[in-house]
């Protein structure tokens, strides 16, 4: 039961992008097309899950004074794995995501979960939490990138969706679009959340 709760937590209540607003750099930078969003999300989910498992396994071994450098090395190792893997098998995607794959190493989400959660609980709970957080991140940036691709290019996952009469709003795939779409989405999620909280208050 606890494990399901840990998993769901990252999907909505403590969604890293929309609720906690951490790990924003990659969420803004790579979300110009829906494919990039999914790829980036899966890469981060892999690093997050593997490092959480390892940190959780080592939680009684790592002295608390040097824990942060230890976590960073664990995270850096798995980031190198993803980096080399993507470079070898998905060179086109790697080209687009650019430095944001190696930059997973400094993504606040990974270190925050290691420090705040994985270092305190058992492997099962740490895994559930990491998967939830990773998938929460993935759906969030996929949503952002779908909106940006739709408005900016009129396509979705590379397929034309908008009719011929549609004039693309180029700004959406340029940097300002990232900030504005993100701001509006965070605002919307705030609104939905407030509403549900109010509803439960009434009943």
């Amino acid at each position: 039961m606890q494990i399901i709760k840990d998993f769901v937590n990252g999907l909505w209540n403590e969604n890293p992008i929309f609720r906690m607003v951490i790990g924003i750099c990659s969420a803004l930078a790579v979300t110009t097309a829906a494919n990039n969003g999914i790829a980036m999300g899966l890469a981060l989910t892999f690093v997050l899950t593997c490092s959480s498992i390892l940190v959780s396994l080592l939680r009684n071994v790592i002295p608390s004074k040097v824990r942060i450098p230890c976590y960073i090395i664990v995270v850096a190792t798995f980031t190198t794995v993803v980096d080399l893997f993507m470079k070898a098998y998905f060179p086109a995607l790697y080209e687009v995501l650019g430095i944001f794959i190696p930059l997973i190493v400094v993504n606040c989400i990974v270190l925050a979960r290691a420090e705040a959660f994985a270092s305190k609980v058992g492997v099962a709970r740490a895994t559930a939490d990491a998967l939830g957080m990773g998938l929460g991140y993935t759906w969030a940036i996929t949503l952002i990138s779908m909106i940006r691709e739709l408005l900016g290019a009129g396509t979705l996952f590379g397929y034309q969706v908008m009719g011929d009469g549609f004039t693309p709003w180029i700004s959406a795939i340029l940097p300002p679009g990232a900030f504005i779409v993100m701001g509006i989405l965070v605002g919307l999620i705030n609104m939905i959340n407030r509403k549900t909280v109010k509803d439960t208050d009434c009943h």
């Binding site: 700004s171 300002p176 900030f179 504005i180 701001g183 965070v186 605002g187 705030n190 407030r194």
Partner: peptide, 18 residues
């Protein structure tokens, strides 16, 4: 009210970026 906090900062950043 819904835009208070990070949301309005993002939108401002968008204008600044423009």
């Amino acid at each position: 009210e819904a835009l208070r906090g990070p949301a309005i900062v993002f939108i401002t950043a968008g204008l600044l970026s423009m």
